[in-house]
Amino acid sequence: MLGVLNTTPVVNGRTQDLWADDAGVRQWAREQGDRGDIASLEWLRTARDVLQTATRGSLPEAEMRRILADVHRLPEVSEAGLQWHLQAPPERMLPVELVLTWYDVRERRPGRLRPCGNDECHLFLLDRSRANTARWCSMKTCGNRLKARRHQERARRTATP
C-alpha cells in the first residue's frame, strides 16, 4: 500500500505520476493478480488519489463511498475455521483491497502512516520506530536536505551583523 501512495514522487522539483500512462499502472495491477483492464486502472488511480488525500488529513467521503459501493464481506465456515471473503465488482476488487488495507493500517498503527515532513516531497512513510518520531520518507534525501538547509539558514543569521 505504501508503494501505491508513493507513485507521485517529486523529481527535480516537479511532481511525477508513475501511473500517468496505462503501462505503469497495468504492470503493477497484473503483479497483484488484477486483470489490468481500463476500468480497473481508473479505479486504481481513483483509490490512490483518495488514499493520498486521506493520509494528508481530509477524508474524501463521497469518493470513498463510490469505491466501496456494493462491497460485501461474507463469512465462510469450514473445518479450517471462519474465513471472510470479499465480494466486489471485478474492476474494483484491487482498489477495495487497497482501501481496506489502508484502514487496517490506520486502525492498527494509528498515527504511523503519514506524509513526509518535507513540504516539497509528496511521498509518505510508515513509521516503524519505537518512539514514533520518524519525520521523513528518507533520511538520506529529505532528512539531510532539510537539516542542511536549516544549518545554512542559522549560519547566515549568525554571520549577518
Rank of each mutant, 00 (worst) to 15 (best):
V4L: 14
L5Q: 01
N12V: 04
N12C: 04
R14H: 12
Q16E: 14
D17K: 09
D17N: 13
L18C: 09
W19C: 01
A20F: 01
D22R: 07
A23I: 14
G24Y: 10
G24A: 09
A29D: 05
R30E: 11
R30D: 01
R30Q: 15
R30F: 04
E31V: 01
D34I: 02
G36I: 12
D37I: 08
I38H: 10
A39K: 15
S40R: 03
L41T: 03
R48A: 00
V50N: 05
V50K: 07
V50W: 03
L51N: 04
L51T: 03
Q52W: 01
Q52F: 00
Q52C: 13
A54V: 06
T55F: 08
G57S: 10
S58D: 11
L59Y: 09
L59F: 13
P60E: 04
A62R: 15
A62M: 09
R66E: 11
R66V: 06
V71Q: 07
H72D: 10
H72A: 09
L74K: 11
P75F: 05
E76M: 05
V77H: 07
S78N: 11
Q83W: 05
W84C: 03
H85K: 14
L86T: 12
L86C: 09
L86P: 08
A88F: 12
P90K: 11
M93K: 15
L94Y: 09
L94D: 04
L94E: 04
P95R: 07
L100N: 06
T101V: 05
W102N: 02
D104N: 12
E107A: 15
R108Y: 01
R108H: 13
R108G: 03
P110F: 08
G111S: 12
R112S: 06
L113E: 00
R114C: 06
G117E: 01
L123R: 13
F124E: 00
L125I: 12
L126V: 12
L126E: 06
S129D: 08
S129P: 10
A131V: 09
N132W: 08
M139F: 08
M139L: 08
K140H: 10
K140A: 13
N144E: 13
K147H: 12
A148M: 15
Q152P: 00
R154D: 07
R154Q: 14
R156C: 02
